[in-house]
Design a protein around this nucleic acid. Structure first.
Lengths: 202, 202
DNA sequence: CGTTGAGTTCAACACTTGATGAGTTTCCGG
DNA sequence: CCGGAAACTCATCAAGTGTTGAACTCAACG
């Protein structure tokens, strides 16, 4: 039986297969490193079909990042409850996201963000508009303090993800997440609600 | 004995020019994003000359990373002095390195490390052999505790560098470094020498 | 002088990348 | 059962990549 061209019989789940393959590829190689050809091969499909569904590589990437990244959940999950344990809940929700099914997308995002220019800019504005604007009111401080506090906490968590999920340095990579929650939680708590002498006037 | 005939090295500035251009390019674009042709153009030179001097792109990159990255200085600078202020001195030395002339190389390293596979592995082993092996004895704890403590502190600093120098998110990017020292120092101090209940048995 | 050999350039190879447009096969509503 | 549309593939393009080898320039030596 000769390989036939044209429409495949049966289920049109191809689009999801491509998205899935794209997520894996972006997570492993980053935006630049992942080629459309590799993604197509991973999905068992012709490269042109990727363009047929998603247009350009940019759009594919954005589509890949669409639903899986929603920091709103994390923010809400962390800020519900008493104020004195925001840090611990924040770290716990953050790690749960990376360990969950949406984790590969997050790895892809982190890898790609550092790699190319436009993703960096995109991510920067994403942080400003999506994270800061939503998290600042929850703290109930003046804006200047809140911005620095939140970016400090976020940078800490970003570094943790970088070391644990991208670089995979031990023993951080295989430590139980609750261990990290106990270790990092208080530090995040201090950034968000604690006294920071020498940083803000008392 | 040295009967070297032929053209004498009348203009060896070119090699340095290429190295300098390479450092900038790698810092801006990362390993993959920086092309040999772009580096050559930046140095006002033919692409083939880059290969004449450095062989392959890998070797060029390694040469670029050679001298500028030496964490030994930071470790020594931080661990000289009383034990109760290691954290502050560590953060101060770390930020000074990124703000100094060797900073661009560090940015290049961070950008590239996240981008490609072999640089990630290279960096991971670099951390293990160069940083851990040197820093562990200074803490005077058992190895298991020391490894986790140091990687926690290092991941925090890496995240700080990522946010401040690569992604450039405000207000972190333009905050005075002493402000960050005051903010981050105590957290690092706690990771290195403080009590970590729930992490290690008391 | 002529030879030497480092500094430098030119042109090209072999390859990969993202993207297109035409063509083929199947499905589904009328 | 027919015709349009969706799904799918093939061949191909124009750029850009790292790398190579031959050739040219030119200062220093014998």
């Amino acid at each position: 039986m000769v390989r036939r061209t044209g429409r495949r019989p049966g289920n049109p789940d191809t689009r999801e297969a491509i998205l899935s393959a794209a997520r894996s590829a972006f997570a492993e190689k980053g935006y630049d490193g992942a080629s459309i050809r590799a993604i197509a091969t991973g999905a068992g499909v012709d490269p042109a079909l990727v363009h047929h569904y998603f247009g350009t590589k940019d759009k594919l990437f954005l589509e890949t990042m669409n639903s899986p990244i929603d920091p709103v959940d994390i923010i809400n999950e962390a800020t519900d409850g008493d104020r004195e344990e925001i840090g611990v809940r924040f770290v716990r929700a953050f790690l749960a996201m990376w360990d969950g099914p949406r984790g590969t997308a997050a790895v892809a995002l982190l890898r790609s963000v550092v790699g190319t220019e436009w993703t960096t800019k995109l991510f920067r504005e994403f942080i400003i508009t999506q994270i800061l604007r939503r998290a600042v009111p929850k703290l109930g401080l003046d804006e200047e303090q809140a911005h620095l506090r939140i970016t400090l906490a976020a940078s800490h968590l970003a570094g943790l993800a970088l070391a644990r999920y991208v670089i995979k340095v031990e023993p951080l990579a295989s430590a139980p997440s609750e261990t990290l929650v106990a270790a990092v939680g208080p530090a995040v708590q201090r950034y968000l609600t604690g006294d920071l002498p020498g940083v803000f006037p008392a």
